[in-house]
């Protein structure tokens, strides 16, 4: 569950004030946010993840106003309740696939369970790459890993920033479908931010900035 209320933001050195439409997602609802480059898509995503602090307005995740708690509590809250998927780099370079997932769970203060990890990698069709290092993964494999990293800790909200822009049509569809499926399995809200119109048909609920 995630709600926003009259979010506004502006960067220190810029005059432009971003103001964002309200979002109100009930349990298991997904949302596609479309918009051109520079319109503030990533800014919105970072506000939702608590990586940026808004000028005004609120972000409430699972009943917690994330900008009203202390920085260290926010770090902890983010680690436990939010999963982020990025466009390119998705994991820690010096760790292999399984180690990344272990580190992810450790830092989220969640118990480390190899059965869950095995099951997840199986689902995402990357069981073969368990001990591969990150830079040996293909684009598709590495995007699947980023999904695993975003859902392994059972978050309340999954936020994806341009997850498909570097993928071909086939992989694009697979990745979004996997994201939707994993969100459903963990009862999480999925918010995808993109300028990629290929994925519009896969979402019932979308807004354009």
């Amino acid at each position: 569950m995630i709600q926003t209320n009259n979010l506004t933001f502006h960067y220190k050195k810029e005059k432009h004030l971003f103001s964002f439409p309200n979002i109100d997602l009930k349990e298991r609802e997904n949302l596609l946010i479309l918009g051109k480059s520079g319109i503030g898509k990533t800014t919105l995503l970072h506000l939702l993840a608590g990586l940026l602090t808004p000028i005004s307005g609120k972000v409430v995740v699972g009943g917690v106003d994330i900008h009203s708690i202390s920085y260290s509590e926010l770090d902890k809250f983010r680690g436990q309740n939010i999963g982020l998927v990025f466009q390119k780099k998705h994991a820690i370079q010096s760790l292999n696939v399984v180690e990344n997932l272990h580190a992810r769970l450790f830092l989220s203060r969640k118990p480390i369970s190899n059965t869950i990890i095995d099951f997840l990698l199986e689902q995402l069709d990357v069981s073969d790459c368990k001990t591969s290092t990150i830079n040996t993964l293909s684009e598709g494999q590495s995007q699947r890993l980023s999904i695993a990293m975003a859902v392994v800790h059972n978050p309340q909200v999954i936020l994806a920033d341009e997850p498909t822009s570097s993928l071909d049509d086939a992989n694009c569809k697979v990745v979004i479908e996997l994201l939707i499926k994993q969100a459903k399995l963990t009862n999480a809200n999925l918010i995808v931010i993109t300028h990629d119109h290929r994925i519009k048909p896969l979402f019932s609920n979308s807004i354009t900035l």
């Binding site: 993840a49 990586l51 260290s72 770090d75 902890k76 983010r78 680690g79 436990q80 939010i82 982020l84 780099k89 998705h90 994991a91 820690i92 370079q93 010096s94 580190a103 992810r104 830092l107 989220s108 203060r109 990293m149």
Partner: peptide, 18 residues
């Protein structure tokens, strides 16, 4: 060089202190 990795670790819930 690994600023992105470190930022990622922060999104995983790592504190500055960690």
């Amino acid at each position: 060089e690994r600023a992105f990795d470190l930022a990622l670790l922060r999104t995983y819930g790592a504190s500055n202190f960690q």
